[in-house]
């Protein structure tokens, strides 16, 4: 090793530069800022922030924009904290699954105990700031959503039952409820309807994905529906949950909470989702249910489900803006 290299590294640690001092490269020296960001699952965070913001906007009452921004940041950070704790707990199966092998913990760039500490600190901070900035009802719901995702979904259900997504999906359905509570300080029927929409949307969304990505789960021993009950049953379940979801999304309009813009949007988007799930159900398959089209309909259902939720909540906000004018 050259003396210059010693000087750079020793200076970096604040040590006295000496050509003889050896360098210690701990795991935390390997991680980058991007790794710590990736621990927060930013893609999942997008949906959480979006639905939380929708809940906050359509809630009756006034909230200062600074407080609203703090609430949204808290929702985002709490979701990220849950993701970090999830990555800590699932590090064994993440190392097996191809999709997750490059995550910072299985790749050895972040030490597991540091990831856990990171998740806990962010979770506690987000709940406290939410309580101080808005109200303790929103903070309690935020704490509940973290606990649900970590204890109920990650630690209890995920590795035990193929219904993991159904019940665990509730954790992802909390944000509009929290956004609403941040404004009003209570929880009425409308935010529960928003909760129910995401709750019913999660199974067809995730099972459509698992139809063409179940090999990873199989390898890791995670009992996803296609692994336990087969592709045929999974397609049937995707269809059933879509049939339950579509009329449910019309309830806010039928009960008078929203206007025609939302009602028509929900109906049109729902018909599209039903058609997509129907195509998925009737995918060309062999007797065992294995797709002969490389799961093309399942892939398109998965993609559609993402646009569906974004546009549906977008329509809800536009409807609210129009009604407010």
């Amino acid at each position: 090793m050259t003396p210059a290299a010693h000087a750079v590294a020793a200076d970096d640690r604040g040590d006295i530069a000496s050509p003889l001092s050896p360098l210690s490269v701990a795991t935390d020296d390997i991680s980058t800022a991007r790794d710590w960001l990736m621990m927060l699952k930013p893609r999942v965070m997008t949906l959480v922030v979006y639905s939380g913001l929708a809940g906050l906007l359509v809630a009756p009452g006034h909230i200062h924009w600074v407080v609203a921004t703090a609430a949204i940041i808290c929702i985002a950070v709490a979701a990220g904290a849950s993701g970090a704790i999830n990555m800590w707990y699932d590090r064994d199966i993440d190392a097996i699954m191809r999709r997750t092998q490059k995550r910072p913990i299985p790749a050895g760039r972040i030490a597991p105990d540091e990831a856990l500490a990171y998740g806990i600190v962010l979770a506690v901070t987000s709940v406290l700031v939410m309580g101080l900035a808005t109200n303790w009802v929103a903070a309690a719901l935020l704490a509940g959503s973290i606990a649900f995702y970590v204890f109920i979904y990650t630690m209890w259900l995920k590795r035990r039952t193929p219904q993991n997504i159904v019940i665990g999906g509730a954790a992802g359905a909390f944000p509009p409820l929290i956004g609403w509570a941040a404004v009003t300080g209570d929880v009425t029927l409308m935010p529960w309807l928003l909760f129910g929409m995401i709750f019913l949307w999660t199974p067809p969304h995730f099972w459509a994905l698992s139809l063409f990505a179940h090999a990873d789960y199989e390898r890791a021993g995670v009992p996803m529906l296609p692994v336990v009950s087969g592709a045929k049953e999974t397609r049937r379940q995707v269809m059933l949950y879509t049939v339950a979801l579509v009329p449910f999304t019309l309830l806010p309009w039928l009960l008078g909470y929203t206007g025609l813009i939302y009602g028509i949007s929900a109906a049109v988007l729902g018909l599209g989702f039903l058609y997509s799930s129907w195509r998925c159900l009737n995918d060309k398959q062999d007797e065992a249910g294995v797709s002969l089209t490389k799961d093309a309909p399942a892939k398109s259902t998965f993609k559609y489900s993402i646009y569906y939720l974004f546009v549906l909540f977008g329509a809800l906000v536009v409807d609210w803006l129009v009604m407010a004018v």
């Binding site: 750079v8 590294a9 050896p22 360098l23 490269v25 020296d29 980058t32």
Partner: peptide, 21 residues
């Protein structure tokens, strides 16, 4: 303890700077 080359040390310093920022 591992010994680093100049390039490795510089890369390490860059990562630390990024994290600090």
């Amino acid at each position: 303890l591992p010994h680093l080359t100049l390039a490795e040390s510089q890369a390490l310093a860059k990562k630390r700077r990024g994290r600090n920022i």
